[in-house]
Amino acid sequence: MSTQNDEPAIAQHFKKFNDLKVRWDANTLFVESNGLPDHNMMVGIRSWQQQVPLPQPFTGNNAWQIPLYPKLADTPISAKDNLYRGAIALAVNGVPIFNALNNRGDDAFLAGELDEFGGHCGRGDDYHYHVAPVHLEKIVGPGNPIAFALDGFPIYGLTEADGSPVGKLDEFNGQFDPQGRYHYHATTTYPYINGGMRGVVTVRGDQIEPQPRDSPLRPALQPLRGATITDFKATKEQSVLTYRLRGQTGTVTYSPVDSETWKFIYKEPDGKTRTETYKRRARQDDRRGGGPPPPRPNDRRPPRRG
């Protein structure tokens, strides 16, 4: 393990966010987070599968791993037809970034699945982005990356460091700088973020490995057709998500009982209320000693059309 005097340059980009912890060895930066941003979440989602943001244990052996010395791949991997499972990048605020296409091969942004910051929650109640978190540019400053792809190459915002327009990008939203260093850029149209992996990665089960596992608390729910999320308020003691469905209001209120148990109160738009208590399930790698979990049935995407 390196000493603090050997701190890799990319560590500083994550250190701007107080809730993150970083460590490193000779080849890898490890980033620990709970997966939650300091901005509001979920508001504006029009296609909702009833997930809510819960903290995730992306710590210890389940931390994010970013290669310190990325290498260009002989055969890059396009996100148009691959990498439909798991994250493909990590924002510098510790929030993972998934493929811009959902597990059905549809553009998540155009499908109305994302909030005002380009994120939503997965089936494990894990918050993540599907488009570039360009709001982070105001925090990190011009010329600094807003994320790192899991191949180790940085992702910058919508302009060059001097504010000039970005030059021609390849199919992965990437380019080489004058010094010959490769990097990705955000765009306002597909693929929004890195459009795949220009660098060397290991892929198993259509997912980049290694990467952390979410830790599901509740059973995965079904889409609530016609619902729009109108408000979300969160404190350490309680979170309340408010939605509208057919002109009526419903809420999901939830709070921690202890570190592994949460209480949920569901107030349906018709006025009915029910209370559930859930205990966090062990992660797949905890139960079986490592390796990626098998895809959930709905994660198996159908053949692409066209």
Rank of each mutant, 00 (worst) to 15 (best):
D286I: 06
G291D: 05
Q248V: 10
S259Q: 14
T261L: 00
G247Q: 05
G291V: 03
E268D: 13
Y243T: 02
T253G: 03
V257R: 02
D258K: 09
K263H: 07
T251G: 07
A282F: 10
A282C: 04
T253H: 04
G290N: 09
D270T: 11
T277A: 00
P269D: 08
Q284W: 15
G291T: 02
Y254N: 09
Y266W: 14
Q284M: 07
R274F: 13
G289C: 14
G291Q: 06
E260M: 12
D258T: 08
E276I: 03
G250P: 03
S255C: 04
D286P: 02
Q238M: 08
S255G: 06
G247W: 08
W262H: 10
R281W: 09
G250C: 10
D270S: 15
Y254W: 07
R281M: 13
Q284N: 06
R287K: 14
R281Q: 14
A282P: 07
R280F: 07
P269E: 05
G290T: 06
E268M: 12
G291F: 01
D270K: 11
D286S: 08
V252F: 03
K263L: 11
Y278R: 01
K267Y: 04
T253S: 09
D285N: 06
T275Q: 13
G250D: 00
E268S: 12
Y254A: 02
V252S: 02
Q238N: 04
Y243C: 02
Q248A: 13
P256H: 08
R244L: 07
R280D: 07
D258M: 11
D270R: 12
T249Q: 01
K267H: 07
S239T: 02
T251P: 09
G289H: 15
T275L: 08
R274Q: 08
Q248D: 10
T249P: 01
S255W: 05
R283C: 06
Y278E: 01
R244H: 13
W262S: 08
Y254V: 13
R274P: 04
G291H: 05
V257D: 04
V257H: 01
P292G: 04
K267C: 06
D285Y: 04
R281A: 13
R246G: 03
Y278D: 00
